[in-house]
């Protein structure tokens, strides 16, 4: 464990806590893409299957349970909670995310570290996480003004993988046979997708103005 990975995990946790706060405090999920939340639930379920087979550390197991439980709770809330689900922007959240799932599954069958069930699912979860934010970014552009908590949620979500990239660079130089190229390439793509969001987020922070994404 190095400081970059720890900061990355904490940033990821903060993003989830901000989203839970927004939904719980405002009883609303306006501006949040249910499709992105479903993709994240799929990412965690596909990646953390080793929760019961490989024990790495208490920290690792606890965080896996937190990520799986929170992502499922958010999806349940947006689908079933009688108050929250009324604020879901159903007509704006129209990204065909099933194509993302199919494409990532196909890619995982072609490119993975070892052609085994767990490795294919792990690669699938890495590829899917890289593109899972797309429905959310599309929704933000369509819904014009972005409320603060939603903007902060997306910001921390993008920042966490940037910390992981620093973690992979650190591990590459400090560990002998560290090869995590599937994660690295996907992580770079994932962080790059946030580039324009980060730009507009920085502009709104500098001008102390409302976050506006161009349509």
């Amino acid at each position: 464990m190095n400081i970059f990975r720890f900061l990355g995990d904490m940033t990821h946790l903060i993003s989830i806590l901000i989203l839970l706060l927004k939904i719980y405090a405002t009883k609303s999920c306006s501006g949040i893409s249910l499709k992105t939340q479903e993709l994240y639930a799929l990412v965690f379920l596909a990646r953390y299957l080793d929760l019961f087979t490989d024990f790495i550390s208490v920290y690792n197991s606890v965080m896996k349970v937190v990520f799986i439980a929170s992502s499922l709770a958010i999806v349940w809330c947006m689908r079933r909670h009688r108050v929250v689900r009324r604020s879901y922007d159903k007509e704006l959240d129209t990204f065909r995310h099933y194509f993302l799932v199919a494409a990532c599954l196909a890619l995982a069958l072609l490119v993975q570290e070892k052609f085994t069930f767990l490795e294919v699912l792990w690669a699938f979860s890495i590829y899917l996480e890289a593109v899972a934010i797309l429905p959310q970014l599309v929704l933000l552009q369509r819904s014009g003004n972005v409320d603060n908590l939603t903007g902060q949620y997306v910001f921390f979500l993008g920042a966490y993988r940037a910390f992981y990239i620093l973690n992979w660079i650190y591990r590459y130089f400090t560990e002998t046979h560290f090869s995590r190229w599937i994660s690295c390439v996907s992580g770079l793509v994932q962080t790059a997708l946030y580039a324009d969001f980060f730009y507009y987020y920085f502009i709104s922070w500098k001008n102390n103005s409302k976050l506006q994404l161009p349509a």
């Binding site: 792990w122 992981y164 973690n167 046979h177």
Partner: peptide, 10 residues
């Protein structure tokens, strides 16, 4: 020490 090739990251 966990093998670094193992999935020790979240």
């Amino acid at each position: 020490e966990v093998q670094s090739s193992a999935k020790d990251e979240l």
